[in-house]
Amino acid sequence: MCTAVVVGTGLGAAPPAPRHAFHVVWPGQSIQKAVDAARPGDTVLVAPGIFHESVKVTTPGLTLRGMGRSTVIEPSAKKAANSCAEGGNGICVVGAKDRNLADVTIASLTVVGFARTGVFAMATDRLAVVNVTAARNGVWGIAQERSVRGLIRDNTALANGDAGIFLANTIQDEAGATDTGGTLIDHNRMEGNRVGLTVRRLRNLAVARNRLADNCAALFVVGDENKPKAGALTVSDNYVVRNNRSCPKTARLDALQGVGIVLTGAEDTLVTRNVVRNNVGKSSLSGGIVLFKSFVNVTSDRNRISYNVLGGNYPADLINTDHGTGNTFERNICRASQPAGLC
């Protein structure tokens, strides 16, 4: 049984402060039982060790915190105990159809080896995923769907089957891009994945100060024929180097290798102050920063690519194969572009 410690009491005539408990989970105990016992505002603190289970969070204001990389959550060999496990996920943070789950924090732990996703969130508001290591999961390391005002910071996503970090409006349904209300993807390290980071059919967010290296592709901003388009976001101050692993073609994408930053079917996106070097490949998407006409023939419009430092990318540092309008390339430091004259 986990240990619960209650903190926070009222003093004098002032209204009593909220009473928030710490539920400490030790190896051999159940994280899920502690989460189920917690109330809004409580913290479930998980000690170092290996925990074989999936954890589903549906309580607002809950913090699920480990003690760093040595707190490890892995799949259980037992029959799935909840829908999170049934879906092949490690940690699930799930709101309702008519109400987002607010103010949940997942922090300072490792989620490894799940068939689908390390940390999966749907219908959340102000979810924070901080200092999490998501490694060798079958599809995504950290994924967020139909969520707003999120913070994904200081995480490490390694060797996941698809994207290290994946954000989308909806995964199963066709729909126009949705406004995230200012989601921030900041200071994460994404290495050895098929794609470091995918932002699909979303608007109003920032991707800043991340390191993306040794993936097949570093970063995708993806839209399609639905309205409104993806875009109205910023990609800035990222370090994008040597994303030269080779990944085969899938039903959704051509083969990938040497892919830096790609905008496809996006509008009003600012790509600025990024360092993009030595991304080398022969796929249709290879290159440093690429504007690519989407596979459903939707153009990218009014995007600004400025003040980036590029070099050693092949077939070029800057590539524009799109026929959209209002796209600008200015004050970038680079050597080669397709067509010529973008540097």
Results as ranks from 00 to 15, higher is better:
81 A>M: 06
51 F>V: 01
18 P>S: 09
98 D>F: 04
212 L>E: 01
214 D>H: 13
183 T>M: 08
334 C>H: 05
100 N>K: 15
2 C>Y: 15
298 V>G: 00
151 L>W: 03
59 T>V: 12
99 R>V: 12
51 F>W: 03
39 R>Q: 13
217 A>V: 02
218 A>C: 10
243 N>R: 11
33 K>H: 10
293 K>H: 11
325 T>I: 14
179 D>S: 14
294 S>M: 07
61 G>D: 03
316 A>W: 01
149 R>G: 04
211 R>S: 03
20 H>C: 09
311 G>V: 02
96 A>C: 06
184 L>V: 12
224 D>N: 15
338 Q>V: 11
220 F>A: 03
335 R>M: 06
275 V>D: 07
232 A>M: 10
267 E>D: 10
203 R>I: 07
19 R>G: 00
138 G>M: 06
314 Y>V: 12
50 I>V: 13
63 T>E: 14
320 N>Y: 05
99 R>T: 13
239 Y>L: 11
153 R>P: 00
307 Y>C: 00
120 F>I: 02
56 K>P: 02
34 A>G: 09
254 D>N: 15
321 T>P: 01
284 S>R: 15
209 R>W: 11
206 A>F: 07
24 V>T: 11
270 L>H: 08
288 G>V: 01
140 W>F: 12
21 A>C: 14
250 T>M: 09
241 V>H: 10
79 K>I: 01
178 T>N: 10
108 S>V: 02
145 E>I: 15
309 V>L: 11
50 I>T: 13
235 V>K: 09
232 A>N: 15
269 T>D: 04
71 T>D: 00
72 V>G: 05
127 L>P: 03
340 A>F: 07
224 D>S: 12
293 K>F: 04
269 T>L: 08
239 Y>T: 12
60 P>E: 11
210 N>F: 05
